[in-house]
Amino acid sequence: MPVSRQELIEALERTAGGDLAAFKAVYAATSVKLYGIIVRILGRPELADEVLQEVYVRVWQRAGDFDRTNSSPITWLATIARNRALDEVRRGTMRSLEDFPELLQLPSEDNPAAGHERNEELRRLYACLDGLEPDKKEIVLLVYYHGMTREEIATRFERPVATVKTWLRRSLAQLKDCLGK
């Protein structure tokens, strides 16, 4: 259910006041995105269901922490979902690359959502990612979208973990310089 940024902000703020209808609106508007984030990182739908529940319980409990002056609502929600999913996958819950062969698929770079408020930011970010060497760009995206650890990257690219760490730090520093903020 597409809603505007302003509608989502207001729904989150009403949620902070205990408005269940507003909470349902937040869920309806954002759960497909947050579930997508979690499924990509965990790779196991049966775990993703539980994590999504925990994420929204946290949203209900902590909606008062959302500060519209500091963050966009979807960034705030996506950060909660990513952190919870990363914590879960770092527990080592029997994840292996064989569990989900689709793991290494990355989102298409074509056709970003038309009219999306953050299209311009996304284009800038991708322009900067394109400035990285192709394999470094792939690594950054694999970690972001699928929560791959340095060790998993090292295995996949057959390089030492320390090298992967160096690659990541340099790539991220380059990205920051390119974005200029």
């Binding site: 997508g36 269901d49 529940q53 963050s71 979807i74 930011e121 974005l179």
Partner: peptide, 24 residues
């Protein structure tokens, strides 16, 4: 978090099962 947030827009949305919201 702000720098990388736009990447979340690129990922494919996935509809969660209906029972998830009942659980919440």
């Amino acid at each position: 978090e702000r720098r990388l947030a736009p990447l979340s827009d690129r990922g494919q949305d996935v509809t969660p099962p209906a029972h998830v919201f009942d659980g919440i």
